[in-house]
Amino acid sequence: MEVLERIKQQVDENPVILYMKGTPKMPMCGFSSRTAEALQSCGKEFAYVNVLADPEIFENLPRFADWPTFPQLYVNGELVGGCDITLELKEKGELQKMVDEATA
């Protein structure tokens, strides 16, 4: 399957999915680590893709939603943003709401 189709399928099939460097247990980047922590604090299951373990996704994810950096959080198939946006949403209590609604 073409890589952009593969990404599309992943974000469509998983209501909350984080593309990150490393894994939530073994993050390989401070920004990915903070974003995963913020998501974990919502107490709901979420999917993740370790972009370091999938060079094709690492190369192509930036053009999927025209977003140049990692990590990238998608909720209900839409890009929410990177680390700074996720943390800001968490601070405002909006992240919890989004995740609750998406996983309900």
């Binding site: 980047c29 920004f31 140049p68 929410v80 700074d84």
Partner: peptide, 26 residues
């Protein structure tokens, strides 16, 4: 919305983002 604000910054820095490793954005 925040995501569009960040998109404006990313667009302004598209050349630089190819060279740098990380950009924290507020």
């Amino acid at each position: 919305p925040l995501i569009k604000q960040h998109r404006l910054v990313n667009a302004a820095l598209s050349d630089e983002l190819k060279q740098i490793h990380a950009l924290a954005l507020h």
